[in-house]
Design a protein around this nucleic acid. Sequence first.
DNA 1: TATTGTTATACTCTATAACTATA
DNA 2: TATAGTTATAGAGTATAACAATA
Lengths: 152, 152
Amino acid sequence: MAKTMHDKEPPQVDDAVLRQFLGYNLKRAYLIVHSDFLSKLSEFDLRTPLFSTLALIVENPGASQTAIANALAVERSAMVLLIDDLEKRGLVVREKSPFDRRSYALHATPKGTKTCRSMLKDVQTHEDGLLAGLSDDERTTLISLLRKVGQS
Amino acid sequence: MAKTMHDKEPPQVDDAVLRQFLGYNLKRAYLIVHSDFLSKLSEFDLRTPLFSTLALIVENPGASQTAIANALAVERSAMVLLIDDLEKRGLVVREKSPFDRRSYALHATPKGTKTCRSMLKDVQTHEDGLLAGLSDDERTTLISLLRKVGQS
DNA sequence: TATTGTTATACTCTATAACTATA
DNA sequence: TATAGTTATAGAGTATAACAATA
């Protein structure tokens, strides 16, 4: 019985065992989208947490560090460094809270607001390109199912 | 003009700006599923990359380190440490490849195979519980859309 | 007592470059 | 010359505990 060429090759690797798990598929999809996202974000010299923090401050003027941290599921201690960074860049300012002398009221500067708008637009365009393989319906369904995971 | 109580409270924080992005929804959903996954995995004293590496070795006996690394989108250098760890635990062995003296043929030990089976079952049960809010159809659709993201 | 912002610390995961032995 | 495995290192992100000022 003659051996074929394939007998001299190692087996191919299949990840079907892991594909049954939602967690695995989530991670793999996130890696792809995030890596693409980062390449666009690097044009603004920003990292992911800076992007989302700036966006929430622009849209929620006067919020405290803890409130932003909670909304993003980030630790308060990490938020301190993020605000430090955004403040150094002149995108955000810490003002005194009129409600509580322990906390700050965060506000975007004009530069921060402008950067944020341009950033959101560019990232959206970039994500649209990456997801060209999905129809509008599929994309809406996907996001809606992802949100449902967060609510369960 | 009398002030209401609400005038003495800071604004609530809303993340709607970010919810339009697939990447943000992916990350938030992944955080929830992964954190739940870790709490179950800790019973086996395993971390996420050890779990997925062991599963692929069990299902793809004889595969090389690089082949497993590629299938998981992990660096070869990281795979070295993962295999070291799995080998120390007696779950996996590095055997000489019959095809290439540079590479190893990875094989699970009986203990590794047993651990993997029990691990996969437990994690699946746990994930089912977490996703009780989604119908079978919704779950199938979600996974299929996530895979489609990876193929675009 | 509890909470806000802060500091320090440590751990996981990832990314890169360079080396060796084989191909 | 290219590839498999290895080593070392650095960085990002995250998690925890403790402290001072304020509630």
